[in-house]
Amino acid sequence: MCFFTLRISPKIHCLVCFISVPILLWAFYLYSRGSVQNSIAIMRSDNTAAVMKTQTYVVEVKHCSNKDSWTVGNLLMPTGLIYAQPSTQRGRTDVNCVTNWNVPLVWEGTFDPVVIDAIYKKTDPRVGVMVFAVGKYTRFLKGFLETGEKYFLTDFRVTYYIFTDSEKDVPAVTLGEGRKITVLPVPSARRWQEVVFGRMKWATMTIDKQIRNKTDYLFLMDVDSLFYHRFGAESFSRLSAVLHRGYYKRTERADFPYERRPESRAYIPVTEGDYYYTAAVLGGYLEDIYNLVRYCYEQSEEDARNNIEAVWQEESHLNKYLLYNKPTKVLSPEYLWSDYDKVPADVKVVRISQLKKNYAEVRPNGGH
């Protein structure tokens, strides 16, 4: 029997080899496939964890369908334009003109208005300006609109989106070519804090549902202001923020009026901070402004659920957002001064300024 087995074993051996090779290859394929899938699953899990860690500061981007139709980056200039030759040796030396993340900090004397306006007029952006005129603040609309027509992005297409609880008080103002007013009704407010928080809510809803395909670049501004000098295309970038006039010179970051209570979603530790920005003027690509206002709205709602209100309402959440989502251009206090304050030597021109007013008289809860 053993002799017989030894004689036929070569044939059996060949047959076994013939059958086993495909089986081994198939098993190797299944093993490899399982390993790759496990690796992908692990990578996805790691990515998910990373995203969850950043949710505190980063807002999901919701792209506008017409985002590619206009960009700040198209720096094309018409031929034949006459302007002063730029210099690498002369310029502002009394102020800093660049941030530590290497974006412009814009002052008078750091740009040529002829060049900058010519470049961006060529891109022909649709500019929106949101202002809120609720209650007695409708009295400021006429001055804001009339001076805006004189100084704000003249010869650009501009739509003023006016949020108000009193449409009849929106004044008839002569507008330039390509410029118009759109009135959007909002409820009245019992507290002025409701108005400032409501700005982020109504801006978020309006962008999402009404103007996503109607505007390329959007500003949010306070209506109780007047324009005094050109406010031009030098303000354009993906996200432009304005330095608060009260804290731009020698204030230490520990002394910025950030929200310091850890219970608030606007909390910033005393060891962190770049600048203190005003919420009264900001601008940017529609989608970037949408991300900012939605963040501020959602974070303030989370605070409300926890029975807390940030120290400076939406401005506190704005500063938290801009600390971790850096603006691509910082505008000097020229872009929002106040009639209450003396103009210092480093502010060569006041482009827009907030008006003096009796807060106790114009605010619904007497300014408190």
Rank of each mutant, 00 (worst) to 15 (best):
R245G: 03
R230L: 09
G246P: 02
D255V: 07
H229K: 15
R238D: 10
K249P: 04
Y247P: 03
S240N: 05
R261M: 15
P257H: 12
Y247C: 13
R250Q: 11
P257V: 11
Y267R: 11
R253V: 06
R245T: 07
E234A: 11
R230G: 05
R245Y: 12
R250T: 14
F256D: 00
G246S: 14
S225D: 02
A241K: 03
R265W: 12
R250V: 10
P262I: 09
F227G: 00
S237G: 03
L226N: 05
G246D: 07
A233I: 02
R265A: 10
Y248V: 03
H244E: 08
A266M: 11
A241H: 05
A241C: 15
G232A: 08
R250D: 10
R265F: 13
S264L: 10
R260I: 10
V242F: 10
A254L: 08
Y228D: 07
L226Q: 06
R253S: 03
Y248M: 09
A254S: 13
H229L: 10
F227W: 01
T251H: 07
E263Q: 15
R250I: 13
S264G: 13
R261G: 13
S240E: 01
F231T: 00
L243R: 05
R253L: 04
R260N: 09
R253G: 01
H244T: 03
L243F: 08
S264E: 05
V242Y: 04
D255N: 14
G246T: 09
V242L: 12
L239H: 03
E252A: 15
R230P: 04
E252Q: 14
R261S: 15
F256R: 00
F231A: 02
L243A: 06
E252K: 10
F236V: 03
E263L: 15
